[in-house]
Amino acid sequence: MVRRGRPGPCRHEADDFQARNLQFVNDFNEANSAIADKQAGALRTAGDRIVLDNIGAVGDQDTLLLDSASKSTVGRVYIGNAWIQGNVDFIFGRASAVIDKSAIRLVKRYDGSSGGYVAAPSTAAGKKGFLFINSNITGDVSSRSFYLGRPWHAGGDASLDPQAIVRNTDLSAAIKTTPWTDMSGFSWKDDRFGEYKNTGAGSGAAGTDRPQLTDAQAADYEIADWLGGWQPSA
C-alpha cells in the first residue's frame, strides 16, 4: 500500500485491527522545496489490541504513528517481524507498543545528511510506552548520528510521561553514545528511557546519560507486562 505525493498516513482507529504481510509506504520526496513540512506518515493506528505482523512501514519523517483513542485510554499494539524505516521520530505516539523481532532501518535525509531519532513516545502518565525487544537497529548512515529517542510532550503537555525501553536488541554504530536527548524544552531525564542487555557497536555501559535496567527491573519489562493479559492471535 503506497501513499503517493504527500497525503496523510493510512488510518486504522478501530480496536482489534490486524495487518499481515503488507507494506505501508509513503514515498513523498523530502527534497520537494515547495513543501516546508516534511512529515509524511505511512500508517497510523489508534485502537486497542492491534497486531502488525510481518509488515513494512517505510518513509522518512514520522513514518509510524502508534496512538490511542485518547490520553485516558489504552492502545496496545504488538508488532512482530516488521521492517520499519525512517529518519526523524519515525516511530511515535502514545500507544503501549511492543516492537519485537523487527528490523529498524535508519535512512539519510533528503539532502544526504545523517541524523535523526528512532522513537518519540508521548506516553500518558501511568501507562506503558514503547518496548523494543529482540530486534536490530541499523542503516546506511554515518556513525554515531542517530538517537534512540526523545520525549514528545504533544501540545506541550507537561503531564505526559514518555517511555521507551530498548532491550535485547542489536544496535549498530549509527547509534550515539548518548542515545537519548531532549525535545521542545522537555528533558528526557524527567521521563522514562532505558536499555537492557543490548549488543552491537552501538551499545554501551550504564552511565548517567545511558541508564540501564537491573535484572530485577527487567523482569517487569517483558512483552507480557506490556500487553496486560492480552495475547495476540497467531
Results as ranks from 00 to 15, higher is better:
37 D>Q: 09
64 L>R: 04
55 I>W: 03
49 R>C: 00
48 D>C: 06
59 G>P: 06
52 L>V: 05
59 G>D: 09
36 A>Q: 13
52 L>N: 03
47 G>H: 07
56 G>P: 01
58 V>W: 11
55 I>T: 10
47 G>A: 03
39 Q>P: 00
42 A>C: 07
57 A>P: 01
56 G>K: 12
50 I>W: 00
46 A>W: 01
35 I>T: 10
49 R>D: 04
59 G>N: 08
38 K>F: 03
50 I>Q: 03
50 I>M: 08
46 A>Q: 10
61 Q>S: 13
61 Q>I: 12
59 G>E: 11
41 G>H: 03
43 L>C: 04
51 V>F: 01
61 Q>M: 08
61 Q>P: 00
63 T>I: 11
56 G>W: 05
60 D>K: 14
36 A>T: 15
46 A>G: 09
56 G>H: 07
45 T>L: 12
53 D>K: 15
47 G>K: 06
47 G>E: 09
57 A>N: 06
34 A>W: 04
33 S>L: 13
35 I>E: 11
42 A>F: 07
34 A>H: 09
60 D>Y: 10
59 G>H: 10
42 A>L: 08
36 A>G: 07
59 G>F: 09
46 A>C: 07
63 T>N: 09
43 L>I: 11
49 R>M: 04
38 K>N: 11
57 A>I: 14
58 V>K: 09
48 D>G: 05
43 L>R: 01
48 D>A: 08
58 V>F: 12
38 K>Q: 11
49 R>K: 15
50 I>K: 02
53 D>N: 14
35 I>Q: 10
44 R>E: 13
55 I>V: 15
54 N>R: 15
